[in-house]
């Protein structure tokens, strides 16, 4: 999009002001996310940059808000931090437990969504699939229907079947999160399959492979990038989800988003910012993974980025 040589002065002015405008919009997109990182190291309980921070004085920065994440009434503060201390933290600290719960819920929800979603995507991408469009619309709709309506429905449904009394912890939340993650798996896996060369499976069958062998040796390695990025989407959806947990989760089912929600509603302290920072770093890692997978998938399928 270089500036053509015949551009008039007005167009030249517009060309540069357009770039500046776009730069400002990118700033709007990215600045709020990055600003929480330095603020989480604030030594004072404020949500703005103190003068010490601006003058890069090391005493203006501290890790106290990260330290706060490890605290709990049961965790002694004045003892040396040895293995026993860390064991107590691992057992009792509220944020650590919330993190563990989030990972457990996210893991099972992701497995369910990926397994069922991939299977369905395989069926949906077959040309002979009946009612393809209608079924696809139903399967994608959890992404479109507002979360509060799904949650309301689950709230009625779970209280009518009494799922909390079944004795399987997190079951309701896991099933709900899997439902929310399924559209992402379907979309990513169908996208991978749309470029899939079906003569490969026929070749494999003609060489004597059973459908199962064909799937695991031929199809799956090719659609794996789509599966993994679908799974990551599903995991992030679950990891970030708060409405369902708030309404249908039992009181002791605390996840990171729920803990954050409580923290923000009660008294927002910079400890929230330290959690936010950890989550931002986490999402950067995920984004990088998805990006690498996408490139790998394009390379494998012979679509090179131009």
């Amino acid at each position: 999009m270089a500036l053509p040589i015949y551009a008039s002065p007005l167009e030249r002015a517009w060309y540069y002001s357009f770039r500046v405008l776009c730069g400002l919009i990118f700033l709007f997109l990215i600045a709020p996310i990055l600003i929480v990182i330095p603020l989480s190291f604030n030594a004072e309980p404020y949500f703005t940059f103190t003068e010490k921070m601006l003058s890069l004085d090391p005493t203006g920065y501290s890790l106290r808000w990260y330290d706060l994440l490890l605290t709990h009434p049961n965790v002694p503060t004045d003892v040396p931090r040895d293995a026993a201390w860390w064991a107590t933290v691992w057992q009792d600290a509220a944020w650590v437990n919330a993190a563990k719960n989030s990972v457990i819920v996210g893991f099972f929800a992701t497995i369910t969504a990926t397994f069922l979603g991939t299977l369905a995507a395989l069926g949906l991408s077959r040309p002979e699939m009946p009612y393809r469009r209608a079924i696809m619309a139903v399967l994608i709709s959890p992404m479109i229907v507002p979360l509060i309506i799904i949650t309301l429905g689950l709230f009625f449904f779970y209280s009518s079947i009494g799922i909390n009394k079944w004795g399987v912890p997190y079951l309701g939340v896991i099933m709900a999160h899997a439902t929310l993650g399924i559209p992402f798996v379907i979309i990513t896996v169908t996208a991978t399959l749309s470029g899939f060369d079906h003569s490969l499976t026929r070749a494999s069958a003609s060489l004597g492979a059973s459908p199962t062998t064909t799937f695991f040796k031929v199809t799956m390695p090719l659609i794996l990038p789509g599966m993994i990025s679908g799974a990551l989407f599903a995991f992030v959806t679950s990891f970030d989800e708060v409405v369902v947990v708030l309404f249908v989760g039992a009181n002791d089912e605390q996840t990171i988003p729920r803990q954050m929600w409580n923290g923000i509603r009660e008294a927002i302290s910079p400890a929230i910012l330290s959690v936010a920072t950890i989550l931002v770093v986490f999402s950067i890692t995920l984004l990088a993974t998805v990006e690498l997978l996408r490139r790998r998938s394009e390379r494998l399928r012979g679509i090179s980025p131009h």
Binding site: E128, V138, L139, I150, L152, F157, I182
Partner: peptide, 24 residues
């Protein structure tokens, strides 16, 4: 065969999504 691949997910969605909406 194509439908059977989709069937498990359809059943799952029916339980965790369609029936709650019907209850609403």
């Amino acid at each position: 065969r194509a439908f059977m691949l989709v069937a498990p997910l359809l059943a799952f969605i029916l339980i965790t999504f369609v029936s709650p909406i019907v209850q609403v």
